[in-house]
Design a protein around this nucleic acid. Structure first.
Length: 273
DNA sequence: AAAAGCCCCTGGATGC
DNA sequence: TGCATCCAGGGGCTTT
């Protein structure tokens, strides 16, 4: 589900829900593992801690306290919601019980998500965070020139390349197709064959589609919701994703689809060369 | 080092 | 209504 805009939407929603002075009274873990084992010390570490901030890094959420951070990846189906009494679910894996009586629930039916504990100051040593590429919306960290340089000699399709979290973070299967359409580049183009001119279109196209989606509250497919419970509407703005056979919004020729690197891919063979 | 394939898991949509 | 099949926002791990 969640690519950068959705994770950012959840982050923002959690921040609004929690406000500046939320305190965790207790943590309940309902299972020992989801994708990976959930550290058993999380309840002890978090009990009594004030939440000092909610951050996003790549597709990860970090719930910060003075003791350390709860690291969370939403996988495909992970959600954080304010729990509604009587709506407990078998896929609720973790509850954060707040001092004000509210309960935040982490629910993840497919269990592709993760929860981990990062001791304060140990963030840059975390094995999952250490290997991540640049934040595409960080104007200082990412540029056309650095992207062009990184792509040299890479024999992988550009769509797979921009979804590689070690290169740049946050772009998943939806926004990869959308950004390449906006840039007029075929998903199957080898990354190493991108011209500088193409990179000059692709870098801003990635930024543009991510920003637009964040502004729309992300894309709601199936049941994605922000932590505050509202749905995003960027799915209404998809130009090619999940539109196989429909007319291209620019030229009316039918949108094509094929599986690339195991993921459904959508493009216009007239507008993208 | 880089690329390709397989795998984890549940549930919804579709077809018979 | 039931059952089988396919597909889904991700990414780690193993093999080539």
């Amino acid at each position: 589900m969640p690519e950068l805009p959705e994770v950012e939407t959840v982050r923002h929603g959690l921040q609004d829900l929690l406000g500046p002075s939320a305190v965790i009274r207790a943590v309940r873990l309902m299972r020992a593992d989801i994708r990976f084992p959930i550290p058993k010390e999380i309840p002890n570490k978090l009990a009594g801690q004030k939440i000092t901030g909610i951050r996003r890094r790549a597709k990860y959420l970090l719930i910060d306290t003075m003791a350390g951070s709860l690291l969370c990846h939403l996988g495909m189906t992970g959600t954080w919601r304010l729990a509604v009494p009587g709506e407990e679910d078998k896929h609720d894996h973790c509850y954060l019980e707040l001092n004000d009586g509210r309960r935040l629930a982490f629910r993840d039916p497919r269990r592709f998500g993760m929860l981990d504990w990062i001791e304060r100051g140990a963030e840059e040593r975390h094995p999952r965070l250490r290997e991540l590429g640049v934040e595409p919306l960080d104007e200082n960290a990412w540029s056309v020139e650095s992207f062009f340089a990184l792509s040299r000699k890479r024999q992988v399709a550009v769509k797979t390349f921009i979804m590689n979290q070690k290169i740049l973070v946050g772009v998943g299967n939806i926004y990869a197709s959308e950004a390449l359409f906006r840039a007029g580049i075929r998903p199957t183009t080898l990354a190493g064959r991108l011209t500088l001119a193409e990179c000059r279109r692709l870098v801003p196209a990635i930024r543009e589609v991510l920003r637009e989606s964040i502004a729309a509250g992300g894309s709601t497919i199936s049941d994605f919701k922000s932590a505050g419970g509202s749905a995003g509407y960027f799915q209404n703005n998809f130009r090619v994703y999940d539109r196989a056979g429909e007319p291209c919004p620019q030229c009316r020729s039918p949108i094509k689809t094929k599986v690339l690197g195991g993921r459904s891919t959508f493009w216009c063979s007239t507008c993208q060369s």
